[in-house]
């Protein structure tokens, strides 16, 4: 038994080694100091929280509720927030003024058609040659907008302003802002999934939390059910990270679910529209330089796994609290960033 213990500990040491690498990424000594100071402030925060919340119970410290699902128990928090989601006041004709949405029409034909007075796809429905195809496009924009999204995807890059315009056609209530917290970047468990949407007044923030890793599947399922009620996903880098990550974790448990929702990844727009104004496109940087949000006592993303591990190992809710706050702030910042991007991309250039 002693031997197996020893070897298991050796495997666990990989974590320590990789963490040491992160903080000591240090041949270029000049660059490491901001990271290191952030790291040590966060470590201090963790220690303080562990002291402060020693012996306390998570559920009595927060508004989370324990709920039962077919897949076991999980935690859920629903919080109303006095904040509104601003969406573009797009109109169908405005988007459909792009005749190139019709298969076969390029810039040259579009110009010719516009000169003949066909200003929108809707007007083109009566055209002898293009009418039938134009009607298909028109129907997509009148029906469920997922079809319109797919059509746009065929022709436009995901950072094209058309997607921002299209999002304006969705009802506000259909938006789901999503952000997750995980133990790693590849195939480690996800333990917190945040989802914000517009409520009857203001916004509602949901947080789906795995109390421990044995609740991961129940948490994923509970989150998925809430996400399925919405029609449009809004994330920051979720196209590459959050959504595939969630799908991978579901598949890990044999739940082969894909989220078909149209997806607005604000990271892509930010890079294009605001990138020149900031030193990088991390959400934290954008918050400071564009949105004017200052977070106090934040846990840096790279230390989120460490905080959650500390919570699990010490059975102490302290280190979990800043992660929840971090996730909540990410969701709310996305609402602000969305508004900012609409200003910049759709109105700024006019």
């Amino acid at each position: 038994m002693g031997k197996l213990e020893r070897i298991a500990k050796k495997i666990g040491k990989v974590r320590k080694a990789s963490e040491a690498n992160l903080s000591g990424r240090g041949r270029n000594k000049n660059h490491s100091s901001p990271y290191e100071s952030q790291h040590s402030i966060a470590s201090q925060l963790k220690e303080d929280l562990l002291n402060e919340y020693s012996g306390k119970d998570f559920l009595s410290e927060t508004e989370f509720e324990r709920i039962s699902t077919d897949y076991g128990e999980t935690l859920h928090l629903r919080e109303a927030v006095d904040k509104s989601l601003v969406t573009p006041d797009s109109s169908r004709p405005e988007i459909l003024s792009d005749l190139k949405l019709v298969y076969g029409i390029g810039s040259v034909r579009e110009k010719e058609l516009k000169e003949k007075g066909y200003d929108t796809v809707e007007e083109l429905v009566d055209h002898e040659k293009w009418g039938e195809k134009a009607e298909t496009v028109q129907d997509l924009f009148r029906g469920e907008l997922a079809g319109a999204y797919d059509l746009l995807r065929r022709w436009k890059s995901l950072s094209h302003p058309s997607f921002l315009r299209l999002s304006g056609l969705f009802e506000k209530k259909q938006f789901a802002i999503v952000d997750i917290e995980t133990l790693g970047l590849s195939n480690q468990p996800v333990f917190l999934l945040g989802l914000a949407h517009t409520g009857n007044s203001g916004m509602v923030v949901h947080q789906f939390l795995a109390e421990d890793l044995d609740q991961e599947l129940a948490t994923l399922i509970n989150f998925s059910e809430h996400l399925d009620e919405r029609e449009l996903i809004l994330t920051y880098n979720g196209k590459n990270f959050d959504i595939p990550y969630i799908e991978r974790r579901l598949a890990y448990y044999g739940q082969r679910k894909k989220f078909p929702h149209p997806h607005l990844d604000l990271y892509l727009f930010t890079r294009k529209v605001l990138g020149h104004r900031t030193r990088d496109c991390k959400l934290g940087t954008i918050e400071q330089s564009v949105l004017g949000v200052e977070r106090d006592l934040d846990v840096p993303s790279s230390m989120v796994p460490d905080f959650y591990s500390a919570y699990r190992e010490e059975k102490n809710p302290g280190p979990l609290l800043p992660i929840l706050a971090h996730n909540r702030q990410d969701l709310l910042s996305l609402a602000d960033l969305y508004r900012e991007l609409i200003e910049e991309a759709l109105h700024g250039n006019k």
């Binding site: 790693g184 590849s186 480690q188 044995d214 460490d306």
Partner: peptide
Amino acid sequence: VFSGTYRA
């Protein structure tokens, strides 16, 4: 379930 924060 793997519970580490690193890559196994």
